[in-house]
């Protein structure tokens, strides 16, 4: 019974049986809620005992257009997503290149570099609150010892430093996964390409630019796309770090929508915000991937 001789319909039937145990939970708890969630954005669903929910078309979206606070949070979300994704990528690429050399201790380094990945986001947030604490955190201590500042900075509480501080934490959390992926990509590059280039006398920089980067392109596009999505949708980390404060300076769109739903009880409006976020992500990804793929061709 070799693969080639099996008729397609039979395969389909067998596959369906193997899929069955997953099907019910996935349909009930993923596909259905997704569809219903999208639809919810077109209703005025809200908290309350025995309240009726009505279909209101684009009503929520009309209101959202004039909601400056939502767009503020959107702007913050875009700054956060782009900064974290780009800086994280640059940092991770550097580390991956280093770990791909014949340096001693790189096994240890590789293991230690995974630490942030293994930690629960809530713990990460708590830990950074300790590190950035104005009175007894080490970061302020070091800055003061180096005379970079004369008074302790309340990084997470100050209007101008809160978002940058949160971005640093975001980079820290996401680096390992990106590094590991890029490292795997690096290891998949054919050695002979470098050897040939070395024979031609190409410098390390030229080798990096003309061999490493083009060879890594698929991996880079894949991981940065995923990072973009994950960062835009992130919640727990910032929720515990700053809860969106001070004064809304770190209010990511997810936090904003969460508050709209679970603080103010406007479920329909919150879902509409989710809808807008989906559209933005899809448009952004489509644009990004199309450009990448075109330049690849």
């Amino acid at each position: 019974m070799s693969q080639a001789t099996v008729a397609r319909p039979k395969q389909n039937r067998e596959a369906i049986f193997l899929f069955l145990p997953a099907l019910l939970p996935v349909l009930l708890l993923s596909v259905y809620p997704l569809i219903r969630g999208i639809a919810l954005g077109f209703t005025n669903a809200r908290a309350g005992l025995r309240v009726d929910t009505d279909f209101i078309g684009f009503g929520n979206f009309g209101k959202l257009l004039h909601n400056e606070l939502f767009w503020d949070s959107f702007r913050i979300g875009v700054i956060w997503t782009l900064s974290v994704t780009i800086l994280q990528f640059v940092a991770a690429l550097g580390l991956a290149l280093l770990l791909n050399t014949d340096l001693k201790f790189r096994g240890v380094a590789r293991t230690l570099a995974l630490i942030p990945w293994a930690m629960p986001p809530v713990v990460v947030a708590i830990m950074w609150r300790l590190l950035l604490h104005p009175t007894n955190g080490p970061v302020n201590k070091v800055l003061q010892d180096l005379h970079l500042t004369d008074h302790p900075i309340n990084f997470l509480g100050d209007f101008s430093t809160a978002l940058p501080a949160v971005i640093v934490v975001g980079i820290w959390v996401g680096m390992p996964m990106t590094t590991v992926t890029l490292l795997a990509g690096l290891q998949g590059i054919d050695r002979s390409l470098y050897e040939a280039a070395a024979v031609d006398g190409a410098s390390a920089w030229r080798q990096f630019w003309y061999i490493t980067l083009p060879q890594l392109k698929t991996v880079i596009v894949a991981i940065t796309s995923l990072d973009l999505i994950w960062n835009f949708n992130s919640f727990g980390l910032v929720y515990v770090l700053t809860a969106g404060g001070p004064g809304g300076k770190t209010m990511l769109p997810m936090l904003f929508a969460y508050n709209e739903a679970f603080r103010y009880g406007n479920f329909g409006m919150a879902a509409a915000m989710g809808d807008v976020m989906v559209v933005v992500i899809i448009v952004f990804l489509a644009f990004y991937l199309r450009n990448r793929l075109r330049s690849q061709a």
């Binding site: 708890l29 809620p33 919810l40 954005g41 999505i229 739903a261 976020m277 992500i281 899809i282």
Partner: peptide, 17 residues
């Protein structure tokens, strides 16, 4: 798709289901 969608969109209907 499950990666792209923000969980806020799913969690409210999940709650209702």
């Amino acid at each position: 798709v499950s990666q792209v969608f923000p969980v806020i969109l799913i969690v409210i209907p999940l709650f209702m289901i």
